[in-house]
Design a protein around this nucleic acid. Structure first.
Lengths: 257, 257
DNA sequence: GCAGGCTGTTCGACAATGAGAAACATTATA
DNA sequence: TATAATGTTTCTCATTGTCGAACAGCCTGC
């Protein structure tokens, strides 16, 4: 207690450990008490108590001796997805985009300096991948993320960079802050963002911001696909035009509802 | 501490209070510190600390002075929905059912003696209601729930009744245990369950169990619609036949995968 | 523009309560 | 059947959550 400033971190540690336990269960697809205890370096009895608590509130299910993530999260997750009218309306637009382009379309939101997939729909052409709703990805390495960043106050962008850094996911990822700021400026002028394999190799994407009242950015819509199809007019005119039109409709829906 | 047996309840109380806080935020669509403190009868400072913790782990977002449920839950909820191959395969079947019948189709699972909506799809004809994924409903008052109960060990059914009771949701709800057991027997013989306004007035539904290896019940598929359409051959033959066929396909998929 | 009453946030002290070690119970295995 | 692994319970200690009160910011209303 000699460092009252450092140790404070005014935070409930038991809640954090419970969270870490659930996270671990998710990562390894269910586990037994001792496994969790060993992996997280916590006493067996402690883990057990946390698991009993989590089972009681429905966040964890016990199947034999294996504990795994329960359905309670679904309830809260679905609530988060629809608690703002804007989010709920975005879902339709994502479906529309996927149907029209036959590619993969998604709606993302910024949270904690990262971008979160809130809705995703895969059109016929799209590669069938893990939907990954709720997944978090670095915000600087996607079209949707950059579209959001471009409409966030510069100061906030700086904070996000400080906190998360500009990690390289491929050789195309923007890792220099100045380069990123220049790109954001360009995005603002052009109206849409492009992602050229900055996230995953041979994957391109186009993203546009969705602005609410007083021009605050709510999230962004994006469409992504393979480089061999995402090129030329298609990625520089057709997709951006469609996205901008859709975002505009969505913004109007949001404003007058 | 004179009652070491009663008070034990070997459970992490901080985790429970954090959970209650999040639950409250959901129920009232976001709230400020003092509001939560007053509502739950906890000190302001305590609530604050919990909220700070929850924000840190991403379960709660702070917008101005209002705290609300965050997107972290989405990640875990989506995981819960797909952690078993059977669940993921059920999604397609639900879509299929909704498309074929144009009614509302859903896949439910039992957890903690209640039934949880895991997937729901609304066909063109279906009344557009709140999707309610993740919502929990009394298991004895729906076709899907009864279909599950019918394939659970009698002892377990008894436990569920003891724990949750047979609350009446409409005047048609089965509230007598013996009547319920008789109904479950009938369901087993007939192969499918019917819900005649036991849940919501003027709503009927048909449900069939989905059985996994060694005939353990995994969940159930159901189709629901208004009484004026759900009658005669449609509800007694067409829908049940379609459901039984679909469940059978699903069971085969599950067994050989 | 200033005072008063709201908030959210921080601080400090006490004691409740969560953590861990070890005993116990239970299952699976050889 | 015995042995080893697990899950569960018990117990003690001090960590750490709780509360009340003080502090700081904001808006309201005079």
């Amino acid at each position: 207690m000699a460092q009252p400033t450092i140790d404070s971190e005014n935070t409930v540690k038991s809640v954090e450990t419970s969270f870490h336990i659930v996270e671990y269960l998710k990562d390894v697809d269910g586990a037994r008490v001792t496994e969790v205890a060993d992996a997280l370096g916590i006493a067996k009895s402690t883990v057990h108590r946390h698991l009993v608590t989590l089972v009681e509130i429905g966040c964890v299910v016990k199947e034999g001796d294996i504990y795994d993530v329960g359905f309670r999260f679904l309830e809260f997750g679905e609530y988060a997805k629809t608690r703002k009218a804007a989010y709920a309306m975005a879902e339709e637009k994502v479906k529309e985009l996927a149907a029209k382009t036959e590619e993969r379309a998604q709606f993302l939101v910024e949270e904690h300096g990262q971008s979160v997939f809130v809705y995703r729909e895969t059109g016929r052409n799209a590669v069938q991948t893990d939907p990954g709703i709720g997944k978090r990805v670095p915000i600087h390495a996607s079209a949707a993320g950059k579209a959001i960043l471009a409409h966030l106050p510069t100061e906030e962008v700086r904070e996000i960079i400080d906190q998360h850094g500009l990690v390289a996911l491929t050789e195309h990822t923007i890792t220099d802050p100045d380069a990123l700021f220049a790109e954001l400026e360009e995005i603002r002028e052009r109206g849409y963002a492009l992602n050229n394999q900055e996230n995953i190799d041979s994957l391109r994407a186009v993203g546009v911001p969705v602005l609410g009242n007083n021009d605050q950015v709510i999230g962004s819509l994006s469409v992504s696909g393979p480089t061999h199809r995402f090129k030329g007019q298609y990625v520089e005119r057709e997709i951006p035009d469609l996205l901008l039109g859709t975002a505009n409709e969505l913004e109007l829906n949001i404003k007058y509802s």
